[in-house]
Design a protein around this nucleic acid. Sequence first.
DNA 1: TAATCTACGTA
DNA 2: CGTACGTAGATTAC
Length: 899
Amino acid sequence: MTASQSRLLLIDGHSMAYRAFFALPAEKFSTEDGQVTNAVYGFASMLINLLRDEKPTHIAVAFDVSRRSFRTEEYAEYKDGRAETPEEFKSQIPIIQELLDALGIAWLSKERYEADDIIATLATQGEAAGLHTLISSGDRDAIQLVNKAVTLLYPVKGVTDLARYTPELIEEKYGVAPGRYRDLAALVGEKSDNLPGVPGVGPKTAAKWIAKYGSLDGLVAKADEIGGKAGQSLRDHLDDVLRNHRLNGLVCDLDLPRDVDGLAWEGWSVEETNRLFDALQFRTLGERINTSLGDRALGGAAPVEAEVDHVHASRLEPGGMAAWLRSREGDVAIAYTGAFASGAGSFDSIALAEGGEALWFDPAQLDAEDERSWTDWLADAKRGKIVHDAKGFNWGADAAGWPEPAGLKADTVIAAYLLKPEQRTYALGDLAMQYLGRELDTTAQEHSEGTLVGLDAAMADDTSRFEADCAAASAVAALASTQAERLAERRQARLAEEMEYPLTGVLARMEITGIAADEGHFADIEASFAAQSKDATDAAHETVGRQFNVGSPKQLQEILFDELKMPKTKRTKTGYTTNAEALQQLYAKTQHPLLEQLLRFRDVEKLKQIVATLRATIQTDGRIHTTFHQTVAATGRLSSSDPNLQNIPVRSGAGRDIRAGFVVSGGFESLMTMDYSQIEMRIMASLTGDEVLIDAFKSGEDVHRVVAAKVFAVAPSQVTAEHRRKIKAMSYGLAYGLSTYGLSQQLGVSAEEAQQLSNEYFDRFGKVRTYLHTVVEQARKTGYTETIMGRRRYFPDLASDNRQRREMAERAALNAPIQGSAADIMKAAMLGVDRALREAKMDSRVLLQVHDELVCEVAPGEADRLEHLVREQMSGAAELAVPLTVSAGFGDSWEAAAH
DNA sequence: TAATCTACGTA
DNA sequence: CGTACGTAGATTAC
């Protein structure tokens, strides 16, 4: 391993354990014999996360021996005034050290010196050895050690939320370079160390002086020239400043029992760690360390298989790629590891399998010839590929600069989803067990859709890694053929091959592309929402007469129902609801101003959060790259996360301001949105075959008006807004299995009136009622429902003894073909749009899908053609008994492109 | 710390 | 007592 790949992790044991001690409740963490373990637990938790995320090659934890040090010798009051260290904390330090021994991690301490000095010394040595160093410490003195090769992980909250202090961040936060932080701290003082600074001088003034005079030395030399009260104050307290500066400097040349080479981390002992966790009565931590760090376990780990499942595995020999690929006759299965997120990723390893042969390679190590053979093969649609999570693979290929993979014959994650759409995860190891009865070594292959958390490059050379990856590729191949049979039996092969598999490529491109964000706009509206949120909070505090957490439903309940004696609302599991609907009803009854303030707070606080989340996800390319999940929603819909761009507000004016921050990017002309009108109702009309409803849609008139006219037996021109509102609510409610009770609640009318309305409706649209009954009836018989494309969803709960579960299943079964068919149609449209854009060689592109809407970026001069093309593909995506109407809009932003 | 509850945004 | 999702903060649990 080269030095540049080595990472040194240095932890201030005392400071991090102390943080953990206060972050976790001591009462909740103790063993039966009374030993408190909260600091041990929190520290261990932090450590496991750091080992997992940072993958250090070298580690040390430094401890203070006592409070006495050379600093207290010079200045007796150093760190004076600190509260006595609680005994409950002290007793946990030896346990933490025992834990470190079990984990094989070096820990150090030295008489007369503090942990920080040890860290400074090791960081200096590490830097000289060319290691990248991470320091985890809650002591600000460590800031002075930061430079290009040394990053400080400073706890923000608790011990697992760590901020990365780089030179740039420190410069931005404190206005001085890390090397000058000592100077600033000397001027400002450090309260926790009992080092008083210059009165009247805060970080702003100190930073200004340091910027002006270059350093503390420069400032002291010119101390006489500094005017104002601050200048005088500095002169009066110069001795303090110089003392602070002497004391806050860290010692970088201690004589320590180990040098950096001696800190190499070999791994952790399963046996010793288990024994200690048992003694401490930690139950979940043992599992966590196994999932996070199973690959670094020493002894007791799963035995290394001598043979790879069903394949002869070989590592790629330089120059061997072309020959191996050329000898393949069937589709090649691909398993890969690495880190993948948000439309990008990097591979640690790739294993290929076909016809009893497997090939393993590290993509970073390919020579030019092999890389060319590989990328040629990748882009060749005639060379079939089977992948476990093709979308993630495409992200990695794009980030590696390879061409877009072509010729996808199957995706084993998607096939598993189609066979069992309710299943939560489709990890390869689980599927291999489930469908093949094979056990894979998946310690390092935790799979969640789109993400394979792999190993660092160093481990890729490990024999077991090579074998495990090849076994995985072999499993992908076997899995695909089993799945293909099952899909064929269920007549779902077309759905898989012609819709879901090709869609992975379309979605991957949308994710890789992302959508441009106007950061300045987001910053502005976030500030505005924050100000409004504060106003509402202040007003609520004023009304109640004291401070309280406006965002706490629990505190709200106490105030509303106990103190103000308002009438009780509907029950939740833990009390009474304070949701917006309930607060509005209470307001109608009591006119209490607090309720209005709370509603206002909730509203703007939510918007503020949404904007803050969006801002945080803007990548360095100025775009937001969501992830679309193709195997999450049981109905067949897509879902979106990190961030979810399918629930961006649109109903309120303030909410729409957020949409204005999604903008057209440079080189493009505008955004275009195109959406289906009432697609679910049209599907219902078509599935039910109800002539009256079908005619209503065919007429091209406002369908809710036409339906209302029938139900209320008036001429369409006589339909009032109230009529229309009721019918619209009822029509949509039908597709969700709305009961008459629910309808009466929704419309705010009596149960009788709701029942009456329902009767009238079904009298006019009889086939709708029949259909809804038939769907559930059929599902009870076969166990599943089907969409127009043959997508299935199973409903075991239709046979449940539990009435609530059964009725829930009935409503879901009723909705599944409608929602699912709409999803099918949109997916068909997306594939059609993608194909048509390629054939027309246009540069416009699809960015987002929001269930019934597509957001596209229009290339210059393509607006008319694009509108025509997308309209044609969307409305022609399925043959229904009613027309599929779409409407379009153009604009510079998503908001402006609404219609 | 991790899991759960409550609330709320979209189609 | 209306389907399908994802996210955030507060609270609870070991």
